[in-house]
Amino acid sequence: MKGVLLVNLGSPESPTPKDVKVYLDEFLMDKYVIDVPFLLRALLVRGIILQSRPKKSAAAYAKVWSEEGSPLVVISKRMFEKVKPQVDIPVSLAMRYGNPSIYSGLKELADKGVTEVLLFPLYPHHAMSSTVTVLDKAEEIRKKHFPEMKFSSIPAFYNQTEYIQNLADLIKIHLEKFDFDHLLFSYHGLPERHIRKTDITKSHCKIDGSCCNTPSPAHEFCYRHQCYETTKLVIEKLGIPEGKYSQTFQSRLAGDKWLEPYTDVEINKMPEHGIKKLAVVTPAFVADCLETLEEIAMEANHQFKEHGGEEFMAIPCLNDSDDWCKTVSNWINKWASKK
């Protein structure tokens, strides 16, 4: 019997320093997130980061927390509830970090008699710290608890026609209500070394401005290429002219070189270049979360206006929109119908 496990990032149990510390420990100690030897990772995370960051992050989470809980989890559950009645096989929901766990999601499917599972990481673009860690953790749990299960996974859907159409339609609806000067595509950042590590050719990725536009097998797993491809395809759908849009990368840790240009740096420079009305979309996420609601809709908005900007629009993620839920359901049903 077939079934599907939808997996998103996860969230602390509450916006308190104690719960945020537990969450950050699980997240940052992941070898696919901070990819250095264990002892060095433990020293960095537990000896330095977790000594100060939980309090700061908890304050950020508190700004976006609702009565129902974490926006990411709440929205993911709403999407899940819309998808369930549209598919012909059992579906469960899990988070890579926190709850509901991947173990609980797989157990729910196993209890329904599912033996063949489609792992569906809810990330449009392939990355070590998103897609790979979900698949690796699920496999670890399968071997230990569900050895009879068989897994397959949905590939990155950054360029899939339905996803691009859903994203373009969402952006269009919001831009029709906003006389924007510029549309910014802000993707979650990654250390540059992650891009090189996922290069299956071991030679293509130079991160020099040309490799992402040069055809290569490396693109199947290249986060940077896939982000630029999403932007290109959406822009083609919307017909937005050159010069009226750009792409950046948000969120980064100090120390290593991360993908550039940086969202905060670019946004702060825009008003002096005549961009007074800015719209920002965050296609790396399918559900609004701390990075979209606090970092962009609140902090970037504030910084933009502090530097002379006048109007700012944070375009929401696909969330539980009917069209997006229909797309996910269609993909699941298509997989389920295969023999």
Results as ranks from 00 to 15, higher is better:
100 P>Q: 13
37 P>N: 14
63 K>T: 13
23 Y>N: 03
67 E>G: 02
87 V>I: 14
59 A>W: 00
74 V>E: 15
65 W>R: 04
77 K>A: 07
29 M>N: 15
33 V>K: 06
41 R>E: 00
64 V>E: 05
93 L>E: 04
30 D>N: 08
66 S>T: 14
30 D>Y: 07
29 M>C: 15
25 D>I: 03
52 S>W: 10
77 K>L: 05
94 A>R: 07
52 S>N: 09
32 Y>K: 06
20 V>Y: 02
94 A>F: 07
47 G>P: 06
28 L>P: 12
67 E>I: 07
86 Q>M: 06
97 Y>T: 14
26 E>D: 15
24 L>N: 07
54 P>H: 03
48 I>L: 12
63 K>L: 10
102 I>S: 01
27 F>T: 14
51 Q>F: 01
100 P>G: 11
71 P>S: 12
55 K>W: 10
52 S>D: 07
23 Y>R: 01
65 W>C: 07
95 M>F: 06
74 V>R: 12
38 F>H: 14
67 E>W: 06
85 P>Q: 05
34 I>W: 00
20 V>W: 08
47 G>M: 01
49 I>P: 02
24 L>G: 09
71 P>I: 13
101 S>E: 07
85 P>V: 08
82 K>F: 04
23 Y>E: 04
74 V>C: 10
100 P>A: 12
102 I>H: 02
79 M>W: 05
50 L>P: 03
99 N>P: 03
97 Y>A: 04
37 P>F: 14
100 P>H: 12
16 T>C: 06
34 I>N: 09
28 L>R: 11
27 F>C: 11
91 V>D: 02
94 A>I: 04
56 K>E: 11
84 K>R: 11
100 P>R: 12
44 L>T: 15
49 I>G: 01
40 L>N: 05
